[in-house]
Design a protein around this nucleic acid. Structure first.
Lengths: 327, 327
DNA sequence: CTGTTAGCGCATTCAA
DNA sequence: TTGAATGCGCTAACAG
């Protein structure tokens, strides 16, 4: 293993100069820099991260939780984007398990005390999420992927990145209207669900604005379902029998869209749309909304770095638009 | 931040004893242990991982690559299982990006030199994988998820864990035969594909054994396709038009099964089966084979720990059976 | 069984 | 601008 001393000896400078070369290159004289550079190349030196971490008390690591049943269908896409973006900033991504919210807080404690993590990325946020309070109390840097439902969205203590589901679903609903549909139902998640309610609102507002529905009759076009295929099928059948004139169904997820589509008799001509543009959307060929994972990751990393440095004057939340995929 | 010294002072023992309490509890006297224990609790002490790593030259970290387009549909399930199993052994999981094999080797260099990783878990192994040679040359611990195709499978230098696709597909083929199918086709991946060839063999052997096919006519029942839905549809149509008597199709993946199923006219009664038991298999309701992710993770972690400790007398490869999901 | 000594590799003082 | 000394928190090796 080659250390900073070896490089210093090779370059005939002091260890400190080599350290400066890496951490404050601008204060090293050009000629010295050259010497160090060639020594580094020759010895294939890479700084030891553990030693640096011990000294600086920074881990250059972001941690993101992974749930037993996959938070979301785009989780692995997001993960790759995150690793990719983090890499550009010299950060690493570490995983921790989140089998329950309590368990998750236990993980925080261990990761923080171990000096393993600079900033947490939380997914699957829920109303009055206990994790937010805990992390804030412990002055630990974190960013949410998902809005802090139940908190003030502009609270400077709570940084977040999210996708504007309301806008995406509104775009989708407009698309359906503009392609001739008039009786557009909505298949959503049961309350309370921040994300679900937000998406539903996109549909409802568009319908009311287009005078296709008024507030008093909106519930006729609405059904709720757990996010699995079978529940989606049942909810869809119930909705269709309750409101037979429906000619399109906007679903809060691809899973429910899959359920809806497979529960309808073939060739009814009823349009069904989803959210996330996952494999089922592509295979069954229904329109969907794609989350901009690379942009999400970019923002998460950018904000994470600001939180680590305790910079508070920049934008600490971002709402990104999903992309409409028509088919 | 509370350190080992604080605990030692609180417990009125030496720092070394506290260290022993954590690392070799059995050599600490009961009464001393009690004292340390209460001091630890009182101060909420957690060892600093960076310092420990620096001292021991061990990171207690496994690294696994993440590809731009998701290696496999079970990737996130495997990841959770891995984090979960690693946690039980006090190991962490770090991610690195693998946009290309060359890029991946660059990542190895950086992670190793930084002292960030004890053992790599490689996925998506291919014939004569260059990563294997590099890691072996550098005496770096690693485990494959997937067999080292093109190498000696019993080579003690190459540890691996894999799922027995051949056996799984054979089970599936037998299931089809026993439910009355006789002309069973196979939709596979183009050669060379270690995994694909292995799975194909399971079908072929079962067919020949059941005298439903002889070696000379086997290719009549066989078609190849890239692993996407549209290619699967095309390949399936070609196969069906070439061999009209086919009454079941075993597919090498759920993706191809989805393609096959959606390309066939409805209610033909032709059975289609997949591999991985992913969402499409569940939603479209075709039989599939489930990979035992928890067992895979368990074995990966077990072997990884042995490799780290350079133990060579234990089993260094494991072949696990997938679970047949009939529907 | 417990305490003492030393040093892992690095970055932050201070001097030069 | 560069160099020498110091210590981050921990544990291996030893001495007691």
């Amino acid at each position: 293993m080659v250390s900073i001393k070896d490089v210093a000896a090779e370059a005939r400078v002091s260890p400190q100069t080599v350290s400066n070369y890496f951490n404050q290159p601008e204060i090293v004289k050009d000629m010295t820099r050259k010497k160090v550079e060639s020594a580094v190349e020759k010895l294939r030196y890479t700084p030891n991260a553990s030693a640096r971490r011990l000294r600086t008390r920074k881990s250059n690591t972001l941690a993101i939780g992974i749930a037993p049943t996959g938070y979301s269908p785009i989780y692995d896409l997001l993960l790759h984007a995150l690793v990719s973006e983090a890499d550009r900033s010299g950060l690493r991504i570490m995983l921790y398990k989140t089998d329950s919210k309590t368990d998750e807080i236990r993980q925080y404690r261990s990761l923080i005390a171990g000096g393993d993590v600079d900033c947490f990325i939380l997914t699957d946020t829920e109303h009055h999420d206990p994790r937010i309070a805990w992390l804030t109390d412990h002055r630990q840097a974190f960013v949410l992927f998902g809005r802090p439902w139940g908190h003030d969205l502009s609270d400077p203590d709570i940084a977040w990145v999210d996708v504007d589901g309301r806008r995406g679903i509104a775009d989708m609903t407009r698309h359906l209207i503009l392609t001739g549909h008039r009786h557009i139902g909505f298949l959503g998640w049961p309350e309370p669900s921040g994300t679900g309610t937000d998406r539903k609102r996109g549909w409802q507002e568009t319908m009311e604005q287009a005078k296709l529905c008024d507030p008093s009759s909106i519930s006729d076009y609405l059904a709720y379902s757990q996010d699995d295929i079978r529940s989606g099928q049942i909810a869809c059948r119930e909705l269709m029998s309750r409101k037979t004139c429906i000619d399109a169904i906007v679903c809060v997820s691809d899973t429910l869209a899959t359920g809806a589509l497979t529960s309808l008799p073939h060739s009814t001509g009823i349009a069904v749309t989803g959210f996330d543009n996952t494999a089922p959307a592509q295979s069954l060929g229904f329109p969907s909304l794609e989350q901009p994972t690379q942009d999400i990751a970019h923002e998460l990393v950018r904000i994470a770095m600001e939180r680590i440095r305790r910079i508070r004057n920049e934008t600490h939340h971002t709402l990104l638009a999903p992309r409409l995929i028509t088919r």
